[in-house]
C-alpha cells in the first residue's frame, strides 16, 4: 500500500447541537457546488468531508438552523 493519509483543518464547521440532519435535512450537502459536505451516518450530522471549499457560502446561507459556519481556508486566510 503506497497511499498516505494527510490531515487538514476543514474551513467549514457544523454546530452539531443545531444541525437537524437526523430529521432528514440535507440542505447544505445539496447546495454545495463542490460537493464537499456529507452527512455522518453514525452521528446523523453534517460535516465537511473534503478540503475543497470555494468559500462561496450557499451552505451557510441556506441552512435552516444556522448550524454551518464557513471560514476562509487557512492557506489563503
Amino acid at each position: 500500500m503506497s497511499i498516505a493519509t494527510t490531515l487538514t483543518q476543514a474551513p467549514v464547521v457544523v454546530d452539531e447541537s443545531k444541525c437537524i440532519a437526523e430529521k432528514g435535512c440535507t440542505v447544505c450537502v445539496d447546495v454545495c457546488p463542490l460537493d464537499v459536505l456529507a452527512i455522518d451516518m453514525l452521528k446523523k450530522k453534517a460535516f465537511m468531508k473534503y478540503d475543497e471549499c470555494w468559500y462561496c457560502l450557499p451552505c451557510e446561507t441556506d441552512c435552516p438552523t444556522d448550524a454551518v459556519k464557513v471560514s476562509i481556508p487557512y492557506l489563503l486566510r
Partner: peptide
C-alpha cells in the same frame, strides 16, 4: 494554480 497554493482558491467557481 492560485498564488495561495489552495487548489480551489480560484476566481472562477472551481466546478
Amino acid at each position: 494554480l492560485p498564488a495561495s497554493g489552495y487548489l480551489m482558491g480560484t476566481y472562477e467557481n472551481p466546478t
